[in-house]
Amino acid sequence: MKNWLFLGAAIVAEVVATSSLKASVGFTRFWPSVIVVIGYAVAFYFLALTLKAIPVGIAYAIWAGLGIVLITLIGWLVFGQKLDPAGLLGMGLIVAGVVVINLFSKGNVH
C-alpha cells in the first residue's frame, strides 16, 4: 500500500512542478523556478521508491497518464487554456488505458 502512496506523491509533485514550470516563464521568475526544481526532485525520488515494488511499465503509465490529465485540467482551470472535444476524448482514452493496465495487466502488483 505504501508504494501506491509513493506513486501518488510522485504524481502530485510532478503536477506541481509542471504547473510551476508554466508559471516560471522560462525560468525568469525565481520562486516558481525553485518550485520546479524541488518538485521534480521530489517526484523522481518518490517514483524511485515506487519502482522497488511496482513494475516500471505500470508505474510509469499511471504516473504519466494521470499527470497528463491533471496538468490539462490545471491548464484549463488556472491558465485558461481551452479544451476541445478531441482533447477531452484523448484524455478519456488515457484514463481508460490506465484503468485497463491496472485491471488486466499480468505485470501489475497490488
Rank of each mutant, 00 (worst) to 15 (best):
M1R: 10
M1W: 08
K2F: 12
N3T: 12
W4Y: 13
W4K: 06
L5M: 14
F6M: 10
L7V: 07
A9V: 12
A10Q: 04
A10G: 07
A10W: 03
I11G: 01
I11H: 04
V12Q: 05
E14A: 15
E14G: 11
E14I: 07
V15W: 01
V16G: 04
L21D: 04
S24K: 05
G26W: 01
G26H: 02
T28M: 05
R29M: 12
R29F: 08
F30I: 14
F30D: 08
S33M: 09
V34A: 15
V36S: 04
I38C: 12
G39L: 06
A41Q: 12
V42L: 15
V42C: 07
A43Q: 03
F44L: 14
Y45A: 13
F46W: 06
F46H: 05
L49Q: 15
K52N: 12
K52I: 10
A53V: 12
A53K: 14
I54A: 09
P55I: 04
G57K: 09
G57R: 07
I58R: 06
I58V: 15
A59H: 02
Y60H: 05
A61F: 12
I62K: 03
A64H: 06
A64C: 13
G65M: 03
G65K: 02
L66D: 11
G67P: 04
I68D: 03
L70F: 02
I71Y: 01
I71V: 15
T72A: 00
L73S: 00
L73R: 00
I74T: 00
G75R: 01
W76R: 05
W76S: 01
L77M: 04
V78L: 01
G80L: 00
Q81T: 05
L83T: 01
L83D: 02
D84G: 10
L88Q: 08
L88K: 11
L89N: 09
G90W: 02
L93D: 08
I94V: 15
I94S: 02
A96P: 08
A96T: 13
G97D: 10
V98C: 13
V99R: 08
V99P: 01
I101S: 10
L103T: 10
F104L: 14
F104T: 13
F104G: 09
S105F: 08
G107R: 14
G107T: 14
V109H: 09
V109F: 06
V109K: 12
